[in-house]
Amino acid sequence: MGFPSFRAPSCRGCSGSITELSAERVRSVAHTYDCFDERLIEALAAMTGRRTRGWWEEYRDHVPVALVDLAELEHHAAALRVALMLHIPALLQTTDHARALFQAVVPPMRQYEIEHRLTHRLKRQGLLHRPDPPPYTAIIHEAALRMGFGGPVVARGQLKHLTDMSELPHVTLRVIPFGADHFPTTGQSFDYVEGPVPQLDTVQLDSHHGACEFLDAEAQLSKYRAVLNSTESCALAPAESRDFIHRLTQDL
């Protein structure tokens, strides 16, 4: 992953967990291995010794470890950008919507597993309500808005929640309608987690077997940044997106 435990591709030799080193040791190692990117070095130095046992550690034995790591990444993110084609972003889901999703998982989860996943997801959402929330941009395809998980009442509540969340100053919600004149992706959903410098960004992908895949190689980050920017370019503006969702809500 990109951070808090990361590999710094442009600073060879600074591998492993940076939190186990001192700031001066990081600077020394960086220069030893001919890394002279001062912004990157200082970002790494600032991360030393800061790893703490956050709320996510309570779930390490109860949900897939990748979800624990994702929660930690989100907690430390400078900004978050997500693009989803068939699902509502996890950080914007209502409790009823999330429960309906977990109940539909194949193979079925046990009830206690559903409850662990649900409480973990709700705690992740606290990120958007803390005093210093990171900027959050969600690009959602119209298909995701029309899926109707949980039935009309749940779907209506979910759409209303989206419009409410889009009113927050740090939340930007943009919709790609079916009538968009171009669509620059194969339909894969992903999260782009920005670190303190671009080299420490991380892309998170969902897989069909339920785990998260993390990408942090420079070429991968560059590709997904370009895909995300292109995807956002074909979406409606925030105000238009809010009106679009409001109209869908009225139709239910």
Rank of each mutant, 00 (worst) to 15 (best):
S166G: 13
P89W: 00
L118G: 04
V171A: 12
A66S: 12
R27L: 09
H116T: 01
Y112A: 15
R53V: 05
H246N: 02
M47G: 15
E24N: 14
F214Y: 03
G150R: 01
L145W: 00
G16A: 13
A100I: 07
I41K: 04
S28A: 14
L221Y: 08
Q158T: 02
V197C: 01
Q103V: 11
L21K: 14
I88G: 05
C14L: 15
A90K: 02
R51G: 09
H129L: 06
P133T: 09
H31G: 01
K123L: 03
R247F: 04
P169K: 05
S22V: 01
T185G: 12
I41Q: 03
Y59F: 10
T249C: 09
S241E: 08
R53P: 01
G195Y: 04
E115D: 15
V227T: 15
T52F: 06
Q93M: 00
L200N: 03
Q111A: 15
V26R: 07
I41W: 06
R53M: 10
R81S: 12
T163C: 12
R124G: 04
L173F: 02
R53L: 10
R124N: 01
T19L: 05
P4E: 14
I41P: 07
Y33M: 14
P107F: 05
L127F: 00
R27F: 00
D69R: 08
G210L: 12
V175N: 09
A235M: 00
M47R: 11
W55G: 05
Q220I: 12
G179K: 05
A90Y: 00
E240F: 00
F36L: 10
G16C: 11
H129S: 02
I140R: 00
R50G: 11
M85W: 07
C11F: 13
R60I: 05
E38G: 05
H182D: 09
G150Q: 03
G157S: 11
S222Y: 06
C14Q: 06
D132I: 09
I245F: 11
A71F: 02
V63L: 03
A83Q: 10
N229E: 14
M165A: 05
Y224V: 01
Q220Y: 12
P133F: 10
F244A: 06
N229P: 02
Y33E: 14
D132R: 10
D132P: 03
R60Q: 08
Y192H: 12
T186L: 09
T94S: 09
R39T: 06
I245Y: 12
T94R: 07
I139V: 15
L173H: 01
R50F: 07
L101Q: 07
E194V: 08
D164Q: 14
H161K: 08
Q93F: 00
I18H: 03
P133C: 15
P107A: 06
H141V: 11
L173Q: 05
L86M: 02
L236G: 06
T48R: 13
R225A: 11
L200P: 01
A226N: 11
E72Q: 06
P184D: 08
F214H: 00
